[in-house]
Amino acid sequence: MDINIIYDKNKVLHALRYHFLSRPEIKILLIIVNIFAIISAFLMFFKKITPVAFLLSSFLWIVLMISFWFILPWMVYRKSKTFKEEILLSFLDNGIQLKINQGQAHWEYRKFKYYTESTNFFHLYMDERTFFLIPKDACHHADIDNGLSEVKQILDNKIGKK
């Protein structure tokens, strides 16, 4: 089964946000910062701290959200050449083959630890920080009636969900 992949910048940025915000360490950090901001709001309301402490916690929350929502996804997108190229992805019996203008690569299915699914993509993880995105839009190929369900079935059988 072959899929022709052309990445949409806005959808890729959304997928990268999903990746960053789904990381356990980032979730814990955001929970701690939110608790700190709520506690500082209560303490400021009861006049136990100055407004400067509340503003500092609010500023910290805003900086973290801007970093994880805008800066990090944009930096990853900008650095990666993959998102700017047209890719022919082939699902073979023994792995996945990628073809681009500069050459090709072959990844055996066992190289992938698991996959997850977001709104617009399948995220194929090689480790906790390295992943490959397959757009769901590309799975709706004209030659394939149920392309999306076929890709999902291949990923379930060969790689497995987290």
Rank of each mutant, 00 (worst) to 15 (best):
L13Q: 10
K162V: 11
I71R: 09
I28C: 03
V63Y: 10
K99R: 04
R17Q: 05
I159R: 08
K136W: 01
W69G: 06
I28A: 10
I134R: 06
P73Q: 05
Y18F: 08
I6N: 08
T82K: 11
K161H: 14
S22G: 03
V33H: 05
E25P: 01
H19I: 03
A138D: 00
K84Y: 14
W107L: 14
L29F: 05
K9H: 08
F70R: 11
F132S: 06
D145N: 10
S58V: 13
V52R: 11
K161W: 08
K113H: 08
D93H: 11
I49F: 08
K111F: 05
T116V: 04
K111N: 12
N101Y: 00
I134T: 03
I26Q: 11
F20Q: 09
F112P: 12
A53P: 13
V33S: 01
E108W: 09
R23Q: 03
Y115L: 07
D145I: 08
S67W: 13
I159L: 09
F122N: 05
I62N: 04
E85D: 07
H19K: 02
I154D: 05
L89H: 12
K136P: 06
K158E: 03
S90G: 07
S80C: 07
G160K: 04
E86K: 11
N10P: 10
W69Q: 13
L60T: 05
K79V: 11
F54P: 05
W74S: 15
W107Y: 15
S90Q: 10
Y114D: 07
E108S: 09
N146T: 01
W107H: 04
S149H: 11
D8F: 04
